[in-house]
Amino acid sequence: MVSAKAVVTNSAGIHCRPSAKIVEEARDYPGTITVAHGNEATELGSVLELISLALEQGAEVSITVEGPDEERVCERFRELFETHFDFPDARSVGE
């Protein structure tokens, strides 16, 4: 088992689209990936469960990986939680 801390950097937090990308990548992993924030934790198998953690910009999460190639996988998910997902800003759409 390997664990790492990450700080959410996306300005809108981990909302639907980032959650979908994170969970999609987790589904390919044959082990278990768990994310914890405060007193809440979830395995990365459901977009809704990840969204339920209400991860806003600046939130610190703990990522735990159990399975093959744990260190590489843990580092990859730390990077995902610290990604500035470059989705279009809703205010700029239609300008």
Rank of each mutant, 00 (worst) to 15 (best):
G58E: 12
E60D: 09
H15R: 08
L48Y: 08
G45P: 06
V61F: 00
D89C: 00
L55S: 13
D69A: 06
F77C: 02
L55D: 14
E49R: 05
L44H: 06
I22N: 03
S3Q: 15
L80P: 07
K21V: 13
D28H: 05
V73P: 02
E24L: 08
A4M: 08
A12L: 05
R27E: 13
E79F: 09
R76V: 12
H84K: 14
T42E: 10
V61T: 12
F85W: 01
F77P: 01
E75V: 14
E82I: 02
E71Y: 10
N39K: 15
E70I: 10
P30R: 02
V23P: 11
E43Q: 14
Y29R: 09
R17G: 03
S11T: 15
E66T: 07
E60T: 10
N10F: 01
E43I: 04
V35E: 14
L44G: 11
F77H: 07
E71D: 11
E25I: 04
N10Q: 05
T34I: 12
S92T: 15
V65R: 07
C74H: 04
T64K: 00
S46W: 03
P88T: 08
G67D: 07
R91L: 07
V65F: 09
E60P: 02
M1V: 06
E75T: 15
V35R: 06
A4I: 07
A26R: 03
Y29V: 08
A4V: 07
V8F: 05
V73A: 02
A59S: 03
E25C: 00
D89L: 06
T64A: 03
L53I: 04
S19F: 01
A6W: 01
T64I: 03
G94A: 00
N39F: 14
A4R: 14
E75R: 15
I14V: 05
I63G: 01
V23W: 13
F77N: 00
S11V: 06
G13T: 08
